[in-house]
Design a protein around this nucleic acid. Structure first.
Lengths: 235, 235
DNA sequence: CGACAAAAAATTGTTGACAGTTTACCAAAA
DNA sequence: TTTTGGTAAACTGTCAACAATTTTTTGTCG
């Protein structure tokens, strides 16, 4: 529990000992810098500058960037360097659709294999979110929401599906398409959570698939609306 | 044609010009070597030996391996090196399940948006496979089968979903879990193809999802049975 | 003043070398 | 014969320097 939040962005000492190659450390560091906005989208990653800053040579930097490029977080242009990948509006929508499909598959598979204690656990999370939604405290609601999604990923029984889902979620998160939700949106979102739990509790895969897909699709349009509103208000 | 023999290590000049970074060329070369069995699963990739063989230094080799590790084709153990990743039976099954889900999503999305000319195109491919299945020539059937799957990936309208699907398919292909199918298996497989086409032609997403998922799931068990039979016959 | 060309600076791509770790080998003892 | 200890070889991890390319600056001409 407490460990999970601790490991979200960084890495624990045990992980550090396991893979103490600099390239690996650098990779996570660059990832962190992108997530936390120290690199802006489309910015070039200056190898020399980063090497000096992190006090390593360019070798590990390049290895880390190559890996991140393979993961899709970084784009590489020959002889010009590594660039922080920016998702266009269109691409972000595409990735969101893929995420919706995969989340739907996960909820479907959960419905095919869930146990009673797991149902209780999901209901507990939804109940907690209901209470937090009433207060409108996004900062408290959000971690539980994340845990709910992670829990479903774990319960679906397919490590690879979960891995792909979490990768897509991270990618969208990095690109700052996170919903900056307000009170009533939380309520709507959690109603969808409840629909998912009801479907999996009924062991109804089709219903679960539909509910899961709808949740992400709706979430995406909620996020988009919020982003548009934000853009208009700041102009 | 004549040029191809000139490129001993197997990349075309156009590829070389597009991304003339050595790391990229090396990456594709290693991938090819894994696919074609020049590296066996769990084998360590000797950086020095490979560097000498490809006539480059270890830098590009390490960058390429880092990327392949991020793609999941290679495993890295600190201070021991890069190893060709081997999927355990269990993991291969897990990946296959993920692949089934994603293929099912693709066929579902195809059903939601397919055009009449596209339907004709798919029917054409299935018809061709029917003829080739009669002859029992796997080597002729297989490319069309691949094209059928790729075509669906293209038609699903989500580049990312298609990318994930092709990645999973490649991973399984590399791990040699490809079906070594015989005549009647081809026939059964193509009957499933026809079911998929019928469902998408009817614009029935649910049916398409079910047909797509069944096709991969059945294909997986066909492959497993073939592998088991092969193992017993060789012991 | 602006366009163009050439030189300079900055940056990426690649290499070979060195340090630290792991593996292989071999001899000596139980 | 097997085990153990130590030494040497092989290999990975990292770095700094060099080559090739791109970008910026500078200088010149219309």
């Amino acid at each position: 529990m407490a460990n999970e939040t601790e490991n979200l962005s960084g890495f624990s000492p045990i992980d550090f000992l396991r893979t103490r190659s600099l390239a690996n450390v650098v990779q996570h560091e660059i990832e962190r810098m992108i997530v936390e906005g120290e690199f802006t989208p489309n910015e070039r990653i200056n190898e020399n500058a980063l090497a000096q800053q992190l006090k390593v040579s360019r070798g590990p930097i390049r290895e880390a960037c190559s890996a991140l490029a393979a993961l899709g977080l970084i784009q590489v242009i020959p002889n010009r360097g590594f660039f922080v990948r920016e998702l266009s509006e269109e691409e972000a929508l595409d990735v969101s659709e893929a995420r919706a499909c995969i989340f739907a598959c996960m909820t479907m598979k959960v419905a095919e294999r869930i146990t009673d204690p797991e149902i209780a656990r999901l209901r507990g999370l939804v109940d907690r979110m209901d209470e937090l939604a009433k207060t409108g405290e996004v900062s408290q609601y959000y971690p539980v929401n994340l845990e709910f999604h992670s829990e479903l990923a774990r319960m679906c029984g397919s490590a690879r599906l979960a891995q792909i889902y979490l990768g897509l979620a991270r990618e969208l998160h990095i690109q700052r398409y996170r919903a900056l939700a307000s009170g009533d949106v939380l309520d709507i979102s959690n109603r969808e959570h409840r629909a998912i739990v009801d479907a999996v509790a009924a062991r109804d895969p089709q219903q679960a698939f539909a509910a899961g897909r709808a949740h992400i699709v709706n979430g995406t349009s909620r996020t988009r609306r919020a982003a548009v509103a934000l853009r208009h208000s700041s102009d």
